[in-house]
Simulated assay, not measured.
Amino acid sequence: MVVFACARCDAVLTGPVERVALPVRAHQTYGHDLLPALMEPGTYAVEPEPFWLPWRPWGEVGADEAAERGVFAPVHGLSFGPPGAVVVAPGDTRGTVLIPERCDGYCIGLDGRDGPNLACARCASPVATRIDDCSFWQTVWLVPDAVRRVPEDGPASGHPAADWEALAREHQGAPPVEPCGAWDARWEAAVGAALAHLLAASAGAPVALPDGILTATFGRAFDALLPAGPAARRVVVAGPGLPSVAGDTDIALVPRHPRTGEVWQPSDTTAAVVPLEADVWLHVAFPREQLPVPATGGLPDGVYRDDPLPLRPMRLFAPDRRIFLRTLARLPAVREPWLRAVYDRVQDAPFTRPF
C-alpha cells in the first residue's frame, strides 16, 4: 500500500491505496447520467501514455512520430502531457480544494477541460483533476509531476503474481444488462476493446462464435466488419477453471487479471490470445442463469415462475465505438490494408452498424 503526497510540501493527498490494472473503460463516456467511481475504494491505477493537456492534432504530429508512441492509425489528437497519470476514486483523496476558475463542465459536474482543478490545501499547488460530470466515470487524476508515491509499510514492492485460481472465487462477473434494460457500460467498453483484438486475430476471415452471450455481443460486429462466408476461424472461451483448449481452436478469449493486468496464457495451444476484462469474462465463462422457482399461494403443483423476471436488454448490443477505435489504433496490425479500411470506415461513419 502507498499514499500519494504533494511533491512541493509533502502534504498527504490520498488514503492508503494499492495498485491495480487500469480498466479499459477509463476513457469511456456513456449515456447522459451520473456514473459511479471508476476505481474501487483503496485502489489506484496508472495511465502509461501521456494524458491531458496539451493536445496536438494528428496533422501536426504526423504518422511517424505517432508510431514511435505506439499509435498506428490517425486519431483526432495526441496528448503531450506527462505520462504516468495516477487515477484514484474521489473518496480516496485527502487535503485538496477545488480551484474555482477551473471548474467548468459539460452538464452537471466537472469534466476537467481546463486542466488540474484540485489544489493542495496546504501549499495551493495544482495537484489533480477531478471528473464527475454526467457520461464520465467519476475519477481523480493525480498530476504525475505534482505528486510523489510514499510507501505505507516499508519499501514499495512490485505486483504479486496473478492468482488465477482465486479469480473466480474472489471476483464476481458483471451482469450484461442493467435493471433498467440497458446494456451495462462495462460490457460495451470491454467488448469494444476485445473486438479490436479479435479482428486483428481473424486476419480478415469470417469467425465462428459459440452460441449465447458472445454471439449476442460480438456477432453483429463480425457480420458488419468481416466478409460473409463459411467461418474460417473458431473462437473459444479459455482460462482458469475451464477445460483445456482444443487443438482446432484458432482464437482463445481469455481473462485479463484485474489486479496485475496480466493476460492469461494457455499452455496447450498455438491459438491467438485475445484479452477480455475479467468481470466480463467471468460472466461469459461461468454464467449464472436465474432459474424459475416453484410457485406458492395455492397454485397447482408443478407450476413455476420467474421472480424476479430475468433481465432482458431493450435494444441490440453495440460495442463502445471510442474504446474500439482507441484500442485498434494502438495495434500494429491496423497498418494492414484490410484492417485499416475497417478502422477508417468506423471512424468516418460513427452511427452505422454495429455501433
Score class of each variant (00 low, 15 high):
residue 241 G to I: 03
residue 216 A to W: 13
residue 246 A to S: 13
residue 288 R to V: 12
residue 152 E to C: 14
residue 8 R to G: 11
residue 209 L to C: 01
residue 314 M to S: 14
residue 159 H to L: 11
residue 58 W to P: 00
residue 290 Q to F: 11
residue 318 A to D: 13
residue 297 G to A: 08
residue 41 P to H: 09
residue 277 E to Q: 12
residue 218 F to A: 05
residue 294 P to V: 06
residue 51 F to P: 09
residue 249 T to F: 10
residue 290 Q to A: 13
residue 261 G to A: 09
residue 53 L to K: 15
residue 155 P to Q: 07
residue 41 P to Q: 09
residue 263 V to T: 11
residue 236 V to Y: 10
residue 151 P to C: 05
residue 306 D to G: 11
residue 203 A to I: 08
residue 6 C to K: 06
residue 214 L to P: 04
residue 137 W to M: 02
residue 83 P to F: 05
residue 160 P to I: 07
residue 12 V to L: 11
residue 280 V to W: 04
residue 321 R to M: 04
residue 270 T to P: 12
residue 11 A to P: 11
residue 330 R to P: 11
residue 314 M to H: 14
residue 27 H to D: 14
residue 279 D to Y: 06
residue 338 W to Q: 06
residue 222 F to K: 05
residue 95 G to D: 06
residue 270 T to N: 15
residue 254 V to T: 00
residue 27 H to Q: 13
residue 94 R to G: 07
residue 297 G to I: 06
residue 136 F to A: 08
residue 209 L to W: 04
residue 225 L to Q: 02
residue 201 A to T: 01
residue 67 A to L: 10
residue 72 F to S: 11
residue 234 R to S: 11
residue 335 R to I: 07
residue 69 R to P: 00
residue 186 R to E: 11
residue 15 G to C: 06
residue 166 A to R: 09
residue 346 V to I: 04
residue 183 W to H: 07
residue 296 T to C: 12
residue 193 A to I: 03
residue 13 L to A: 02
residue 252 A to T: 04
residue 180 C to F: 13
residue 346 V to D: 00
residue 333 A to R: 14
residue 262 E to W: 10
residue 224 A to V: 03
residue 227 P to C: 06
residue 302 G to K: 02
residue 354 P to T: 00
residue 74 P to C: 05
residue 220 R to V: 06
residue 203 A to L: 15
residue 121 A to Y: 02
residue 185 A to V: 06
residue 18 E to V: 13
residue 305 R to K: 12
residue 259 R to V: 12
residue 218 F to P: 00
residue 138 Q to Y: 10
residue 315 R to P: 00
residue 256 R to A: 03
residue 80 F to I: 08
residue 207 V to T: 01
residue 108 I to P: 00
residue 23 P to V: 06
residue 306 D to H: 15
residue 133 D to H: 04
residue 108 I to A: 13
residue 14 T to H: 05
residue 231 A to L: 02
residue 144 P to F: 07
residue 23 P to F: 07
residue 265 Q to P: 07
residue 141 W to F: 08
residue 224 A to S: 12
residue 74 P to W: 01
residue 113 R to K: 15
residue 128 A to P: 03
residue 65 E to V: 13
residue 208 A to F: 12
residue 50 P to L: 08
residue 55 W to F: 15
residue 243 P to T: 01
residue 280 V to Y: 01
residue 287 P to T: 00
residue 44 Y to K: 04
residue 148 R to C: 03
residue 211 D to N: 13
residue 13 L to K: 05
residue 228 A to T: 14
residue 60 E to F: 02
residue 345 R to D: 15
residue 67 A to F: 12
residue 111 D to R: 01
residue 138 Q to H: 14
residue 221 A to I: 01
